[in-house]
Amino acid sequence: MSHSSTPPDSERNGADSRDPALREAFQALKAEDRTRVPDAASMLARARAAADSTSSTGTPQSPNPDVVPLRRRGALRWGVPGLSVALAAAVATVLLMDRAATTPDADFERVVEAWSTTGGAWRSPTDDLLRPPGDELLRTVPRIGGGSSLSRDPRAPRPDGPERESPS
């Protein structure tokens, strides 16, 4: 790995050659700090126990059980009212839909809809008047090369059909 190689002296800032006073002061501070280093074994043992409890519960445990983490407190603050509102809305929707489905109007509409598809349903005798001549041109797509049935000469033989004999 490149980062494990020793960098050149110039990259080492020249701290040894140009800043002996600062270096000496920092080394004095370091020696003093070394006298206060807490025990590594006990810290790692505590960390291992906390890490194990974290992995078993899925959430990091606070060192102080009385202290709820900030993120969890935020979730509690907004999560509980939000959940209540969502639940109330769901219940209201279900109740309204159920009520609408069982009203007399809804029953009557279902009966009418079923009856209108039967043969006995009333049909207006003037419905055909609403269909203008050539109405099929607006509702169908003409075939290429076939021509329109309206523009074709009725006396000409049909291109794709059998020859019709004249009745006379």
């Binding site: 807490p38 810290m43 790692l44 505590r46 960390a47 291992r48 906390a50 890490a51 974290t54 990091p60």
Partner: peptide, 16 residues
């Protein structure tokens, strides 16, 4: 410093 180091160890050992 000790608290911060302890938390750091927990993060590392739990692979977070």
């Amino acid at each position: 410093a000790e608290d911060v180091l302890q938390t750091t160890y927990v993060k590392i050992l739990s692979r977070r």
